[in-house]
Design a protein around this nucleic acid. Structure first.
Length: 156
DNA sequence: AATATGACCAAGA
DNA sequence: CTCTTGGCCATAT
């Protein structure tokens, strides 16, 4: 991260996000919001996107830490938006993204406006949490980021 | 320092 | 179904 690598807190955010993403099974996809929930920050899906954006540049890493995670060891292609759409981050970005997903066996179709989409009910990966149905929340205690961090590193 | 943006999301209208 | 609104906060200008 550009800003002084001294900020452990910022590094921590990137770390938990990357590790959560690495848990997405091959051939499945999930959303930014789900990753945000996994790391205990359900209200910051946007910041997850920031992480991946920086991930796109593997070199230019001055700190050894930033070299830990790069576009080749983090399956960024398995993270799409909540509607199953592939975010058009560039002119040919979406198509390239779709190609990578198809290579994993994920079916990518075309939306109404030529937007590439994935069928979440088929390829979506949302581990045992459907708030809309059960309305149950796992950690209803006062735990926050710390707990989430543990949980994220747990599964690895 | 202050303002604008963005690989987003959920809920309303 | 589409469009708007409010919220988030690390980066970029």
């Amino acid at each position: 991260m550009p800003r002084g690598e001294r900020s452990e807190e910022a590094w921590l955010w990137y770390t938990v996000v990357y590790e959560a993403i690495q848990e997405i099974p091959y051939g499945k996809v999930t959303s930014y919001g789900h990753i945000a929930r996994l790391v205990g920050k359900p209200e910051r899906p946007r910041q997850v996107g920031v992480c991946l954006k920086h991930l796109a540049a593997p070199s230019t890493d001055r700190t050894k830490k930033s070299a830990t995670y790069n576009s080749s060891n983090v399956p960024w292609q398995r993270v799409i938006n909540a509607r199953g759409g592939i975010p058009p981050r560039g002119p040919h970005g979406a198509s390239r993204h779709a190609a990578v997903l198809r290579a994993e066996g994920v079916e990518v179709s075309e939306g109404s406006m030529g937007e590439l989409t994935v069928d979440l009910s088929k390829y979506g990966w949302f581990p045992e949490m459907l708030p809309s149905e059960t309305g149950q929340v796992e950690s209803s205690d006062g735990e926050d980021e710390e707990a989430a961090e543990d949980e994220a590193a747990y599964h690895a």
